[in-house]
Design a protein around this nucleic acid. Sequence first.
DNA 1: AGCTTAAGAATATGG
DNA 2: TCCATATTCTTA
Length: 693
Amino acid sequence: MEKYSQDFGFYCKKEPLSLVAGKILTALHSSHTANISEIPSNNRFSIGDYVTNDKECEGTEARYSIFRSGNPARITQLGPKIPTASPQLDSNTLLSGILILVKRHSDVESVNPSESNIYDKEDIYIFMDITDTALLRENQEQYNFLRKVLLLILQRKTPVICFNAKDLLRTIVRIYGNWKKVSQCVIFDPRIAAWLLNPSDCNLSFEELVKIHCERVDLKTTYNSSHTQHHITCKRLNILYHLMVKLQHKLQSEELWDLFCTIELPLTTILAVMENNTIQVNEEELKKTSVLLGIHLKELEREAHHAAGEKFRLTSSNELRQVLFEKLNLHLRCKSKLPRTSSCHLPSTAEPTLHQLEDLHPLPRIILQFRQVQKIKSTFVDGLSSYISKGCVSPTWNQTGTVSGRLSAKHPNIQGVSKLSIQFEKKQYVQGKAKEIVTINPRSMFISAKGHTFLAADFSQIELRLLAHFSSDPELLQLFNKMETTDIFTSMASQWKNVEYKNITQADREQAKRVVYSVIYGVGKERLSQCLGTTRAEANAFMEHFLQKYSVSDFTQKVIDQCHRKGLVVSLMGRKRPLPHINSKNYSLRAQAERQAVNFVIQGSAADLCKLAMITISSSITSSSSLTPRIIAQIHDELLFEVEDSQIQEFAALVKHIMESLQHASGVGLKVPLKVTLSCGKSWGCMTEHQVK
DNA sequence: AGCTTAAGAATATGG
DNA sequence: TCCATATTCTTA
């Protein structure tokens, strides 16, 4: 349950918001005051014109005010809007208000952000109440004013500073409807800056950031009890300004500034737009599926109880452990040693273990099926329902949620929706009827809007290609430069399993993929043998053969050496990850850091490229007058769009061209070509490959 | 007694 | 002793 939180004196249902229109040292010269003075200054809108508290505000036409910091009495009366409704997990909630600080002087260097002079008397504050956009629309004059102010702030190249900028942008995009107008805006978000400096501690609060990056400012002593809420709010806005200046300097000295400006900053706007885009869900199908899966689960439970000879809760790994190892004693009949849980040293009941046991007794296979169905039902069917509003979902995207630079999604986590469909036999209650096999594909619940089609663009084997680039291994390079028409993992699976290329299933391909990446990132033979379902000796042989054929150890060693020297690793576009344990005396910690180092260089670089792809595609949509596709989701290496039926051909060609050209545009010049596969369809679960002319 | 919280296990995704 | 996510469920 998300809770209310307070920041800068403003409350909103989801996240705190504050914004400072300001100027940073390196920014272009542009006079805020001149711009602000363009705001129509009739009596009603003049500075300090109208200030009100909440109650008076109700039902009146006053929705904004402008004042100077030199007049704290007026600040005092700006009461924060505290929503009276109960908290809800509604990512579509609009923010309640915007407070803007317009810095008149940009000579921050000379300003010591201490108690005495954190205020600049010349500074201007603008407060805008945007709780009720409908009202704003009714009152044309005020609506125009709001638009004008926001456009003034966002359409010039002077940077704006905002904590959690995405939330502000989401709101603004919604007010405007037309996101293309603000797509080029420049908003610095201190949270993102801090995350780039150290991706390990993400989601730090404003207070924590100030504590870490502004040694001289102490939030607690900066406020004294005589200050009112809004006095404090204005001070916090000033501190926010200084925090960003500090962070900018740090980013510049760590050579992260480019990454910040060219990747993360434009991405924030894109994510805000994505959060305003909705994905339609097939609700009837969802309900039917839920019932169907419920029946099937009960059936599986019955079978499991029968196989075990007693009733127990299938969802409890403890009870399962008792049945498997204390009652049935399966561990005694199993040749290889069974793994144990890392913490309590108990026998594991995880997937690989159950696979080892599945030939000894019917129960393990039933449990595996049960867990698979249970996961799909609770997470992707019933879980999904709770996020539906008006037949649609709209995930929340977290830009700073990972250490590798990737994005993460929640509510729902669309990146984690099962790709493979499950099949089972529908139990027939009517006698004499033919057996019915039902197929359930969780992704098919997501459907495109009327008159629109989904277009998915995937980078093929992006991490493997990056490995080829970094290692310069001739074998790998040749693999990709040969311009294969066949799928690499499928052909590897076919080679390894001695099965015709055509007969390789999707599951086989996934397994081959997992094995390949596992070996690259330094899997142990224990785990690999489980993954492959073979003995450790065979796994070892496979590993050695693979690593001999593709000699990547020069590269991995280079990464590890560099990490030992510098204590951090760097991705293709300069993203950094500190790994403090790299020089630890503890072997396992050090070894883990070494694996993380290698993994980060590849995974982080792939994340860089995918983000770059989003930005480039988005800006080409912006600059086009005719194209209207919407970015729906990013699944790490896949971009999902919803396109008007008539634009599919044109847009598909554009996307493919942009993504495959990134090998030159990335600024590095990749030694391998990038390959993109396109597919489209009316449902995410049923996409057919799309050839571009 | 019933309630919350935090951690771990398990399984889905991506590579 | 592959990496890094989210979600759900159990357990303490």
